[in-house]
């Protein structure tokens, strides 16, 4: 019964697309942003990325050996999970915590459900949420860019805005260009928006990801922030809301995960809308400065129901 191969009747469509190809394409589209992170926050960043990836791969390998399954670590899914998890971490996190988070992501969020294609929640985000709740002090220790690893900690723009009740980014001493290029403190892979967008564009052109989830996610967040995040109605800083935190990384690379997002376009639009709305609500009123991770996880839980209400069209039938 293990790994039944379900073959439907013809017609079968042949397409030059495989899990392996998709995973490695996403991986390479993310690499530039990581290099920018290393450049901005120092060599410790590189270690975090490596430890996260290696821990993810070893965990996957061990569990597949224990379950007597085909070893599939070369398909890149564990590598990608490790990389994505590392991108959401602050650059000062102790390495054993990184390894633990990566273990949690693979062992509990993915393999406990049956491995690739069976997980309900995005493993990398599950790992991040686990780390955030386990080590709250370490997970908010961000450093300013271009400083040495042991330099004074510096809060992310979102934290500054939340705690200081500031109304515009000029009060923090940043420009939109700084945010766009990544000259701010933050998680190591989320800061360089320009390179993340470049990678996302690459994936969109190759049709590895579709525009539905990211667009509705970012649009919802932008509009709600514009309407309600300012002092008065409809004068919030929507551009800041989009460029800060992990929105771009989350919307293009995590909310679009094939397994944990809905199948049909309509459901994807709703999924993105939910992500954007929850992110805004957590940022505005919640205890945490950033809500991207939690919002995607919460919407992951609704995916089976969304798929049920918007089922994919059966091939060969008209609507």
């Amino acid at each position: 019964m293990e790994n039944r191969l379900i073959s439907s009747t013809s017609p079968h469509i042949h397409k030059d697309i495989s899990i392996k190809r998709i995973m490695w394409l996403v991986f390479f589209s993310l690499v530039p942003a990581g290099i920018a992170g290393i450049f901005l926050f120092g060599s410790n960043t590189l270690w975090i990325i490596l430890v996260s990836i290696i821990s993810a791969v070893i965990t996957e390998l061990l569990i597949q050996c224990l379950r007597h399954q085909k070893i599939s670590i070369t398909d890149g899914s564990a590598v990608l999970t490790g990389l994505l998890l590392a991108y959401t971490l602050p650059p000062t996190l102790p390495l054993w915590m990184v390894a633990l988070g990566s273990f949690f992501a693979i062992a509990i969020c993915k393999q406990a459900f049956g491995g690739l294609g069976c997980n309900i929640f995005n493993p990398a985000l599950g790992g991040r949420a686990f780390l955030l709740l386990s080590f709250p002090k370490y997970m908010v220790r961000f450093i300013a860019p271009f400083g040495s690893a042991d330099s004074v900690t510096s809060a992310t723009p979102l934290v500054l805005l939340k705690e200081g009740n500031l109304q515009s980014i000029s009060q923090i001493g940043l420009s939109y260009m700084d945010l766009f290029l990544g000259r701010r403190s933050g998680s190591l892979g989320e800061v360089c928006i320009a390179l993340l967008l470049l990678g996302a564009l690459f994936l969109l052109i190759l049709r590895v990801i579709s525009w539905h989830v990211p667009l509705s996610f970012i649009l919802t967040l932008g509009i709600t922030s514009w309407l309600w995040s300012g002092k008065n109605f409809a004068c919030g800083d929507w551009l800041f809301a989009i460029l800060s935190g992990g929105v771009i990384l989350g919307a293009f690379f995590m909310a679009t995960d094939y397994v944990s997002s809905p199948l049909t376009r309509k459901a994807q639009l709703i999924f993105g809308f939910g992500c954007g709305l929850i992110t805004f609500v957590i940022r505005k009123w919640g205890g945490y400065p950033e809500g991207v991770c939690f919002s995607i996880l919460i919407m992951n839980a609704t995916v089976p129901l969304l798929d049920r209400f918007f089922p994919p069209r059966v091939y060969g039938y008209k609507k």
Binding site: L100, I108, F130, L133, S134, F135, P136
Partner: peptide, 14 residues
């Protein structure tokens, strides 16, 4: 040991 999440509800369920 420092893994605070184990003392929170998710840790219990896990």
């Amino acid at each position: 040991c420092g893994i605070l999440v184990m003392l929170l509800p998710p840790g219990a369920l896990l």
